[in-house]
Design a protein around this nucleic acid. Structure first.
Lengths: 212, 212
DNA sequence: GACAATGCTTGACAATTGTCAAACATTTTT
DNA sequence: AAAAATGTTTGACAATTGTCAAGCATTGTC
């Protein structure tokens, strides 16, 4: 009997322990979310913890309660960012019944992404560049890169499938291409080039059928 | 006669003036060159003027004599960087007499670039990312991007020409593709992935003939 | 309701930053 | 060679940075 009580208490402790941790992680994500706002606005180089705190409902000390240091915070931001964008096109891929529908759905989402999430994407390119200098970011960045590659591949192979074909290039090549195109379009877009979005769409519309 | 003397003096003044300016610009480039070293090592975010000065034969004050501010220095670095890399493959393009020769020359140069100039290239990607946040860098970055696009295009169209063909895609698409591939390979290379270089070469070797 | 644990704020710290001005050195001009 | 212009060094400045510890508030536990 004593044993049962002991193990029951242990379970309770474990449960509360898990709850604590969950709460802790939830707050971490909240803080990371807030940090992403400022990072997207200013970029990695110009973002300080105090600036992050000021643009949030928290004070700068909290960040050191939840993160080992600044790098830890940024890493958490990067990881969190991943989850937000990796499934962006999956809805379109899943619901499209024809090549045309998939193409239009993809293009629409692409345009929306470029227009409304330009800040998050420039941050992504910024952080990916930082990974070229700092080991600490590399693991997460490479992982995201891979996820994005898979995302593009899912669209492309589905598009090919709807035409009874197979993509003519590898997932890596396809991702490199789209990544390059998007990066270029983003720079144009942020330079207030009104043609950035339509040009990207036109390029993709022409390109995708020749590859897949 | 008085007029002739006056105009002669004016010419002399102009000449010395030009000499001064030339000397001034030469020093500017020296300083920019030195700055590029540190920038390539640390990246934009972690590079201070003092750090640049310490890794050079100059003191930190000089930089403010030759540059309006830090941004001005970085811009000068970016511009200067451009000249150094935009003609990298032109020798190969000009001398190659066959598709095979051009391919092998290009691949060799590509491998050398990735291996020996990784630091400069990660800086390029870093600064291009900064241009997404700072207007000041945009003009130069867009110009370099265009120059690199042209560079790739010269190779590709020559390669196609040697096979009596024409490139199947636009210059923009081709650049996006190679830029994406190189960026990815660079990250792998800097992560001590020994396969980075051979994989990039293999990819390009397979890809180029299908496009051009 | 006392107590402890957790969460959060505040202020201080040492270090670093860009900038600038005054002093110094060197070169050029007269 | 004196004087002026140019180039360079040095040190100081105010602001900002990441970090941390002491204190305050809130929550949960017994």
């Amino acid at each position: 009997m004593a044993q049962q009580v002991a193990s029951a208490r242990k379970r309770v402790l474990d449960a509360t322990e898990a709850l604590k941790e969950e709460k802790f992680n939830a707050r971490r994500l909240e803080l990371a979310e807030a940090a992403l706002e400022t990072l997207g606005e200013l970029g990695y180089a110009r973002t300080s913890l105090r600036e992050i705190a000021q643009n949030s409902e928290f004070t700068h000390g909290v960040f050191h309660y939840y993160f080992r240091d600044k790098t830890d915070l940024i890493c958490c931001c990067v990881s969190h960012y991943k989850a937000k964008c990796v499934t962006r096109y999956d809805q379109v891929t899943a619901s499209a019944q024809s090549r045309e529908e998939l193409m239009e759905g993809f293009l629409a989402k692409l345009a929306e992404t470029l227009r409304k999430e330009a800040r998050m994407h420039r941050l992504w390119y910024d952080l990916r560049a930082q990974a070229l200098f700092e080991d600490a970011f590399r693991k997460d960045v490479i992982e995201i890169d891979k996820s994005l590659e898979n995302m593009i591949w899912r669209i492309a192979s589905r598009y090919a499938e709807l035409g009874g074909k197979r993509p003519a290039v590898s997932a890596g090549v396809l991702y490199a291409l789209f990544d390059g195109l998007f990066q270029n379009a983003l720079l144009k877009f942020l330079s207030n080039d009104d043609d950035a979005v339509p040009e990207l769409l036109e390029e993709v519309r022409r390109l995708l059928p020749t590859i897949c």
